[in-house]
Structure formats: C-alpha cells, structure tokens
Amino acid sequence: MRILISPAKKMRVDTDSFAAPSLPAFLSETERLLTALRAMTPAQLQKLWKCNDSIAALNQARLDTMDLHRQLTPAILSYEGIQYQYMAPGVFDRQALDYVSTHLRILSGFYGVLRPFDGVTPYRLEMAAPLSVDGAKDLYTFWGDKLARALAAETDLVVNLASKEYSKAVLPHLPTHVQVLTCTFGELKGDKVVEKGTMCKMARGEMVRWMAEHNVQQAEALQAFDRLGYRFSPAHSRAEHYVYLKEDV
C-alpha cells in the first residue's frame, strides 16, 4: 500500500527535529526544473507563481540561493498546510514514523514524488503551473509516466488522498494491476456529495494520522475511519471510491 497526498504551498526549514537520510528519487529532474526557473525574469516568475509581491520576493530569494543537497528538511516536516497540521507528524511515535516512512508518498510539482524523510528545500511550484521545460508544455507532460512507474514498482494498491491537481499526474498512468482507492470527504446536499476544501484537507491529514496509529495494511480497514465527524457511507461508496460523510452535530 502507498498513500498519496498533495504538498502544501507554505514551507519551512527544520534541520533539527529529524535528519533527512535520503535525497529525492527524481533529483536530476528537479535540477532541470531549477535551471528553467532561474532562467525566468522576476515578472515571469510572479506570473507563474500567481502570488503577491512579498511572496514573489521570498521565492525569488530562495531560487537564487537554493541548494538541493545541503541544509535539507525531511519532506514530511517541511510542509505547513492544513493537511500537515492535522497529520501532526512532529509528534508521531516511532511506530507511526516507521509506518509513514514505508507507506506515505508526497506528490510535488518540483520533486515529483517524495518519501517522507527525503530532504527538501522550500520552493514554490504547483503541479498545474504552466512551466515549459525540455520541450514539455507543462509539468504533467514533463513528468509523464515517471511517477506512476515508480509507484507501481513499490505497490499494487494506491490509496489516493491527493487533490485532483496532483493525482492526475499519477493515476492515468498507473498499470492495470495497480488498484486505486480514492477517498472523498463531503456532506450531503440533497442527493449530491459536496466537498469543502478546508475540511477535505483536515480529513486527509487526519486519515494519514489514523492509518499510522492503526497500522492499516488493507483497503477495507479504511471503512472504520471515524474522525472529525466523518463516517464511511456504504450507500455512496464503491470498491475503488470510498465516501465519508460528515454527520450532523
């Protein structure tokens, strides 16, 4: 089993909590992306990043001094978004750390796919960013089937907790022998399941924490997830798509 999650825009440096024992598997591709980004003007970068002047200046400075090999932060501690706050890896016990080290994979526009303790440096590059590199029109084309092939070599079951922006860099390319289970967290509005962005991020992080605490190894075990008011809904679920509905409080 491999669990897929998205990264977060906001990142931090933490070289003290845990060592980063490994480098990302696709570092040569990351180096090519870094070269392409450094060749862009500040105005082009800000348009690519879709951010304000302050954030653009911060990330321009990061590009100018970026070192992909030294002073790195384990990926799981580097991202600061809501999903990671609810996962709370900084307080995992040894068993939970071992679990995510084996089972969790973080998708990234810049790094491709990351193991939790791969060393990374703060960057800004979303998977959907229209960056042309090496003749590829965008990052989906740049990464192609590389990420899917790497995952297929590790497992025959992918639990998809990533956003559509990131999951579509992998799922369309997976071979047929790899089972994909996508989890949706929503609320019933009439007869439709409606997802709310912030709540989804909270639930995805909480599910990773729950899986690590319970050492989940089989897809069916996920039906027991019951955090943040969500419960598995058999009526809305299929073998390849589990739906969790938030109960009225």
Rank of each mutant, 00 (worst) to 15 (best):
K246S: 05
A129K: 11
M211L: 11
L72S: 05
M11W: 06
K47C: 01
R124F: 03
P74M: 08
P172H: 00
T30G: 10
E206C: 09
F110Q: 15
V249R: 14
N215F: 04
D16T: 15
F110R: 15
V133H: 05
P42Y: 13
A57R: 15
A128L: 08
L58K: 09
W210R: 12
S28I: 08
V194T: 13
A8L: 05
A152M: 08
H69D: 07
D67A: 07
A25P: 06
V194A: 09
T15Q: 14
D156G: 01
L151Y: 13
E154V: 07
A88Q: 13
A203S: 08
K201A: 03
T141D: 14
G229A: 08
H241K: 12
A152G: 01
S163H: 09
R209V: 00
L27D: 02
L188S: 09
Q223K: 15
Q46N: 07
D98V: 03
T65N: 09
A39W: 10
T65A: 09
Q85R: 15
P21I: 11
V159S: 00
T141Y: 06
V194R: 15
Q179E: 14
A162P: 13
K164C: 06
P116L: 07
A235N: 09
L222Y: 03
L131C: 10
S17N: 12
D53K: 14
L104Q: 01
G135I: 10
S101I: 01
L147T: 15
L77V: 02
G90H: 11
K164I: 09
T15G: 07
P89H: 03
L114N: 01
H177S: 11
S163N: 10
E240L: 02
Y230S: 08
H214D: 05
P89R: 03
V180M: 07
H177L: 05
R70E: 12
L33T: 15
A61I: 02
A150H: 15
A153E: 12
